[in-house]
Every structure is written in structure tokens, then in C-alpha cells.
């Protein structure tokens, strides 16, 4: 969620709340024996408010599980989660008198730090990453479909290769003078051996098949194929440039298609990478939040007891 002008009311409300809490805290801590203490009346108020904020923030998960519930707009819930979750941190610090304590209270404080820090990181990522993704990944697809799309790209590439191979088999004599001249001066480039002389079309088909089998198919079919030559755009361009030298100009659009498929695969890889960054923090934030709410409830009950 982008934190824009629409958050203004929440921002002002949150900051005002923190300010009021801080203004109350200063005389409270100065006049309390040994400083602020969670067990005092004021300390309990801070603790209760913070618990209520955390509980509301935690309910976002439940709200998402049942999206058809007509309890406020999803955006309102998200903003509440963001800002009330934020305000719970200073309230807890005021509640504890900026002490971490020992045992359960220390565990709770560290959990709170983890939840708060991961939440802040998440909010920053959610603010910047979507725009970055749109800019850098024009061919963005549904994340969960990336594996399926990769396989479709492989199939698409296979079709192109087959068409090119068929074209080469039936049109040897169609080699142009320019192609002949170019292939005559070719050598070995980028791991692809360029045939020479008039035998270009027969060898080109085999080399194209070999290129697809050894380089392109493994790259496009598998995710996370970093380190492969085609994962690097400049190396990829170089390799496809050599393929163009093998083939007659009328087949160059097919090479462009293959290059285009590789480019799309690179974007899919980048999308996976961005998606992991954009959503990976939730692997920390959500489990830690549940643990915090659970142990927080124990703390609240036992603090009232003792």
C-alpha cells in the first residue's frame, strides 16, 4: 500500500496520539518511584491501549481470510493496521518505561521489536516496490503463474525452433550473397561455432537445435537460472547476434522471437526476485505477530495476577 495523501488523517491522528502519550509520560515517569512501571494505573492504560492497537492490527489477517465480511473497507483496515500497529510500539515503550525486563516481558519486547521492524520494512517496500516493479517489469504476470508461463515460453520457443529448422531444410539455396559473405568471415563466438562457406544452412539448423537444447531450453524452463549465459542480457544479445549470422535474413524475425522469449524469462526471474522482497518480510512479520499476540495475552493475565 502506498503511503500517500490519503493517509493524511491517519498520520495526523497517529502522531497526535503519540504526542499526547509522550506528554503524559514525561511527568508520569518523573513523579513515579523508580520511573515508569507497567503495573501503575498509567502504565496499565498504556499497556491496554497498545494491546488494543495490536489486536486491531492482528485482526487484519482475519479480515483478509473472509473478504466478503462487510466490516469496513479493506483500505481502512489496511490503514488502521499500518498506523495503529505503528503507534502500539511507542505505547508499549511507555508502558514498560523503556525497559525490556526479563523472562516473558523480554521475549515480548523482542517479539515486538521484530514485528515492528519487519512492519516498517514491509511498509517501505510496499510503498516503493510496486512502482519499481511496474517500471522494470513491463511483462509482469501473476506471480503464482510464473512457473506455468515459463513452460509456455519453452513450448513457444520449441515451435519457433521447429519452424526455423523446417525452413532451413527446404531453402538451402535461398542463402543470400550477404549471408554467404558474412558466414565466410565468421569464426567461433560466444560458444557458438559459426559454420563457413556455402554449407551454412545445413550446419545452422543443427547448431540452432543445439543452442536451444543446451542453452535456451534449460534457461527458460527453470526458475532461478542465474549464472546461465542467457540470464545476462548483454551475453544473450551477443549469442543471438551470432545466431543471426548463421541464418538467412528472412529467418531473423524468428531469432528475434527467441530473443524476446529470453527477455520475458529474464523479466519473470526479476519479478520472482521482486516478489520475494516485497512479500518475504511477511514470513517474519506474521508468525512473530501471532506469537506476540499469544504471549501478550499470557502476559496480560499474569501481570494482573502478580
Amino acid at each position: 500500500m502506498r503511503i500517500d495523501q490519503t493517509h493524511r488523517t491517519w498520520f495526523i491522528g497517529t502522531m497526535a496520539g503519540v504526542l499526547v502519550a509522550a506528554v503524559i509520560y514525561v511527568p508520569y515517569t518523573l513523579t513515579s518511584p523508580e520511573g515508569a512501571n507497567g503495573g501503575t494505573a498509567v502504565g496499565l492504560v498504556y499497556g491496554s491501549l497498545a494491546s488494543a492497537c495490536m489486536l486491531f492490527a492482528g485482526l487484519l489477517g482475519a479480515r483478509k481470510k473472509v473478504p466478503i465480511w462487510r466490516i469496513g473497507r479493506a483500505q481502512t483496515w489496511m490503514r488502521g493496521h499500518l498506523w495503529l500497529g505503528f503507534v502500539s510500539f511507542p505505547l508499549i515503550l511507555f508502558h514498560s518505561g523503556f525497559r525490556f525486563g526479563i523472562g516473558l516481558t523480554r521475549a515480548l519486547m523482542w517479539l515486538l521489536v521484530v514485528v515492528f521492524a519487519s512492519g516498517i520494512v514491509g511498509a517501505i517496500l510496499q510503498h516503493f516496490m510496486p512502482r519499481l516493479t511496474t517500471e522494470r517489469i513491463p511483462l509482469e504476470t501473476i506471480y503464482e503463474q510464473i512457473g506455468r508461463v515459463r513452460l509456455q515460453l519453452v513450448a513457444e520457443a520449441q515451435t519457433v525452433i521447429d519452424e526455423v529448422s523446417a525452413a532451413l531444410a527446404g531453402n538451402v539455396s535461398q542463402a543470400t550473397a550477404q549471408q554467404r559473405a558474412a558466414s565466410a568471415s565468421a569464426g567461433t563466438m560466444g560458444g557458438v561455432t559459426v559454420a563457413s562457406g556455402l554449407q551454412v544452412d545445413e550446419g545452422a539448423s543443427a547448431q540452432l537445435q543445439e543452442f536451444f537444447r543446451r542453452e535456451m531450453q534449460p534457461y527458460v524452463a527453470n526458475g532461478g537460472s542465474r549464472g546461465m549465459p542467457l540470464a545476462d542480457r548483454s551475453r544473450s544479445q551477443s549469442m543471438f547476434q551470432q545466431l543471426r549470422l548463421l541464418l538467412p535474413p528472412n529467418l531473423h524475425p524468428a531469432i528475434e522471437d527467441l530473443e524476446n522469449i529470453c527477455e520475458e524469462k529474464r523479466e519473470l526471474d526479476r519479478q520472482v526476485q521482486y516478489h520475494r522482497i516485497l512479500h518475504g518480510w511477511l514470513l517474519v512479520h506474521i508468525p512473530a505477530s501471532y506469537a506476540l499476540l499469544l504471549l501478550g495475552a499470557v502476559h496480560a493475565v499474569m501481570a494482573l495476577r502478580y
Binding site: G38, G39, G101, I102, G103, L104, T105, M302, A303, Y306
Partner: peptide
Amino acid sequence: QKIYSSGP
């Protein structure tokens, strides 16, 4: 019961 202790 030390787990409930708020401090040393």
C-alpha cells in the same frame, strides 16, 4: 515462576 518476573 520466574518467567513472569518483570525484572531482576
